[in-house]
Each structure stands twice: as C-alpha cells, then as structure tokens.
C-alpha cells in the first residue's frame, strides 16, 4: 500500500488501484470491529450476570481521565481528517504540522492511559499485581477485561501512530501523493481506533 503512485501490473489504471486499496482497508477495518466485538460481548455478558458489581466497579474507574482521553483522541482524529484534506490540496507543509499535532495527541493519549494504569496499581485493583482492594471474582474479572480491552486498544493506538508517523518518514507521502491514498487509509485506521474508544469509554467507565 505504500507504493501509492506506482501502477502495479494487476491493475488496469491507477484510479482502480486506489479504489482497491481503499476498499481493502475498509474490509480490514470490519475485521477489527469484529475482534473488539468479541470483547464487547464478554463485557455485556459480565454486566448481565453481575450488574451490581459491574456498575460498582465502573463507578470506581478514573472516569475523568478516560473523559480527557476521549477528548484527546477525538481532537487528534479531527486533525487527521484535516490532514487528508491538506494532502489532497497539495499543502504539504500544513499536512505535516497537522500530522505532528495528531501524533502528539496520540502520544498524550498513551501517556494518560499509562498514568491511569499506574493509578490503578496504586489503588490496588490490578488483579495479577496489586489485588488488595479487589472484591473477589467479578470485580477482578471486570478489571481484567478492562485491561484486556484498553490494552488491545492501546496496541492499536500504537499501530495507528506508526502508520501516521510513516507518512512523514520514511514514505513522506504527505509531500507527493495528492490523491491521498496512503494518507487516507492511515486516517481511516486512526478514525477506527477513535471509534472503538468512543464505545469502550462508556462501556467501561460510565456504566450506571
């Protein structure tokens, strides 16, 4: 997908090649949604079977940190959307600044996330490491699923950041690709990472 401007032999036109890249990315994102779908199913089952414990555990989350993170990620996503428009308009410099902004916000998200993990460690609610304050099975299970879901999400954030960074280096796509194929696909991925968080946040932090 990196070779945006070179026509590969299996495609009749560059236009078709771009459509294919775009379409392939969309299908890939569908698989990502389903991967997280399984985790959401697990969370819903836990909530259905242990609703009291689930809401209690959820209330104890650092929901304001999660809230800040939601804002951070949404802003970053907005910058990336603007970046794609900038690439299409040929303003490479603007695109680069927007990318730096998005990258910085993405890193902020991760920093806050890990700070939150640290706080949870201090609170004594990390099942395998500091379980002092856990109230038995369902509470531990909630926290475990929380770590699994947000951990997997953090891995996706990391992947998205790598993709976005590669637009600056080594590919420098922002500079020459005015049809924004690779930039557009990277942006799509970043939006997905964002959307998943938008569903994870209420599921984990705001259950009442």
């Amino acid at each position: 997908m990196a070779e945006v401007s070179r026509l590969q032999p299996q495609f009749p036109t560059l236009e078709r090649q771009r459509e294919a890249d775009h379409f392939g990315m969309l299908i890939f994102l569908a698989t990502e949604v389903l991967i997280f779908g399984g985790l959401f199913a697990a969370l819903f089952v836990l909530r259905a079977e242990h609703s009291t414990e689930y809401t209690k555990a959820s209330k104890e989350m650092h929901y304001w940190l999660g809230g800040i993170n939601t804002a951070v990620l949404l802003t970053s996503s907005a910058l990336v959307a603007l970046m794609v428009e900038a690439v299409k308009a040929g303003s490479a410099r603007l695109a680069k600044y927007l990318l730096f902004g998005a990258l910085a916000l993405g890193l902020t998200f991760l920093a806050i996330k890990f700070m939150e993990y640290g706080l949870e460690y201090r609170d004594g609610v990390v099942p395998q490491l500091s379980a002092a304050k856990l109230r038995g099975g369902p509470h531990a299970l909630f926290m475990d699923l929380y770590f699994a879901a947000t951990g997997l999400h953090a891995l996706h954030v990391l992947g998205g950041l790598t993709l976005l960074a590669s637009l600056i280096w080594p590919f420098g796509t922002a500079r020459r690709d005015t049809s924004a194929v690779f930039a557009g696909n990277a942006a799509l991925y970043w939006h997905l990472v964002d959307v998943i968080w938008v569903f994870l946040y209420p599921t984990l932090y705001l259950a009442r």
Binding site: A30, L34, I35, G38, L39, A42, G137, A140, L141, D144
Partner: peptide
C-alpha cells in the same frame, strides 16, 4: 467476518490460561 471472532475467543482462552482472569 467470522475469523476475527475466533481470534478474540482464542485470545480470551490464552488470557485465562496464562493469567487466570476467570472469564
């Protein structure tokens, strides 16, 4: 559309196996 669901199911089995999360 189906394979990702297996992926996550197996991931949960692995997590349960290694960390005993209890899911």
């Amino acid at each position: 559309l189906a394979t990702p669901v297996l992926t996550i199911a197996l991931l949960l089995v692995a997590l349960e196996r290694v960390f005993g999360i209890g899911i």
